[in-house]
């Protein structure tokens, strides 16, 4: 009897359980690390909170840049407006962080819908310039209205009540960390569901061929506007987390540089994968934090180098390393099964 070849024994059907295992590991790992971090890195929870805020911000960008193909330089506008909305709400209306958070989501989401309605008729460089103009205008508005925003001194004097009246924001950052983790998890589930729905698929189709999507009856502009508004609301939610966890909102949250940083994070991690935001934001923040201790300017050199390597060699960002690793392992297994 002829012995079946290795390729027969490790046919796609046979590899399916391995793929499923990898997929499960891929889903569980980020959250396990995040939960584990809470217990093992008590002294660094504020860094962990910052990372989760940036992950959420990058995740919001992934919805428009990665899935819908909307290339923007103005995403910080929604992040900053969310942060200011949460801050101003806590100063002038209520220190309840949850109500303030919802307020920030609504304000930034509405801003996304209004600005999106004005600029989503355009494409390419025109659109890019309009997003740049939007964030610059909002930045300047924040800078000029010192009486409201504190100008370049930032918004101070925020009051933040304990969450549900029980969990106070303490100096160790435990409450802020769990708060950020829960908010991130909720938004992630929402994004996952949304991007795997027919609506999410239609965004994929719009990115690939908007003309074809129109010809099959898809109201392209409305779909883009909807995801732009949702993404803005998510970015605003990240801004609200920043405001509540630091009790301060700086003008830099509205800056063009912030838009650039979140874009770099997402491209580093990988677009159109949702988890790419996790990897990109975490790596960026950790590299920045560790190398800045050695030399305050050196981290930009490292991040720039990583970005160049990623763009040149890893089309899908650092997330591609997992895929390449899995492929190498399966090749190795196939070879080791050879007679």
């Amino acid at each position: 009897m002829t012995k079946p070849s290795s390729t027969t024994t490790l046919a796609p059907a046979a590899l399916a359980p391995i793929s499923k295992l990898w997929a499960t590991v891929g889903h569980v790992l980020p959250w396990a690390i995040a939960i584990g971090f809470f217990f093992v890195a008590e002294g660094s929870l504020s860094i962990g909170t910052q990372i989760m805020i940036w992950i959420l911000f990058a995740l919001s960008l992934d919805l428009i840049l990665g899935y819908a193909g909307i290339v923007t330089l103005g995403h910080a506008a929604f992040f900053g407006v969310g942060a200011y909305a949460a801050g101003l709400f806590s100063i002038h209306f209520s220190p309840d962080p949850l109500i303030g958070h919802i307020f920030a989501i609504v304000v930034s989401g509405l801003l996304g819908l209004v600005t999106g309605a004005l600029i989503l008729h355009t494409t390419g460089v025109t659109f890019l310039m309009l997003t740049l103009a939007t964030v610059s205008l909002i930045f300047e508005f924040g800078n000029q209205t010192r009486w409201l925003t504190g100008g370049d001194d930032g918004l101070q004097g925020m009051r933040v009540d304990p969450i549900f009246g029980m969990f106070e924001f303490n100096i160790f950052g435990q409450t802020a960390y769990v708060y950020a983790l829960v908010v991130l998890f909720i938004w992630f589930l929402f994004s996952w569901r949304l991007m795997h729905s027919p609506f999410g698929r239609s965004l994929d189709g719009i990115r690939q061929n908007s003309r074809r999507m129109r010809a099959i009856g898809t109201p392209v502009w409305w779909r883009l506007l909807a995801i732009y508004g949702i993404s803005a609301a998510m970015a605003g939610s990240a801004g609200a987390l920043l405001a509540h966890s630091t009790r301060f909102v700086g003008l830099s949250s509205l800056s063009l540089l912030t838009s650039g940083i979140v874009t770099v994070m997402l491209i580093l991690g990988g677009t159109r994968k949702l988890y790419g935001a996790f990897i990109g934001a975490a790596i960026y923040y950790l590299v920045q934090d560790s190398t800045a201790k050695i030399n305050p300017h050196f981290w930009e050199f490292i991040v720039g180098g990583m970005l160049i390597i990623t763009v040149l060699f890893l089309e899908g960002g650092l997330m591609d390393l997992g895929r390449i690793g899995r492929r190498l392992i399966s090749r190795f297994r196939q070879r080791s099964d050879l007679p």
Binding site: S202, D204, G205, Q208, N209, R211, T218
Partner: peptide, 18 residues
């Protein structure tokens, strides 16, 4: 033809359903 390359056959069909 303009089939969406990164969507599966089923997803290509789902996005077109009215």
């Amino acid at each position: 033809r303009e089939v969406f390359p990164s969507l599966t056959v089923e997803e290509n069909l789902q996005v077109s359903a009215l």
